[in-house]
Amino acid sequence: MRLSKEDIKRISDLARIELNEEDESLFAEQMSGILRIVNKLDKVDTSGMDQMVTPTGFTNVLREDIALPSLDPKEALFNAADREGAFFKVPRIIEVD
C-alpha cells in the first residue's frame, strides 16, 4: 500500500501538524515504507486466535472507589504554558474545516 500526498495531508490535519509540500512528499515516501514493513504481518495466519488487547494477559484489574488527595493546583499547573489563577489558559478554540 502506498500513501499519497493527500493521505499525508489528512493524517497531518488529524494530528494538527503543519507540513509544507516538500514534507508531504518526504513523509509519503517514508510512511509508505513503514507500512510496507508492517504489512508483512498480514501474511501471518491468525485465524482462530483471539484479539490481544494488552500483552499482559491480565483481566479485571480494578481499584476500590476511594478518593485520595490530589495534586496541589500549583503542582498541577507547574508545566502549563500559560495560566490564569488556578486555570490552564489556552488559545481560543477554532473549529477547523
Binding site: 490552564f88 489558559k89 489556552v90
Partner: peptide, 8 residues
C-alpha cells in the same frame, strides 16, 4: 473568546 480557561 480570545482565550479559554480550563478546569480539569
Amino acid at each position: 473568546a480570545v482565550f479559554s480557561l480550563e478546569d480539569y
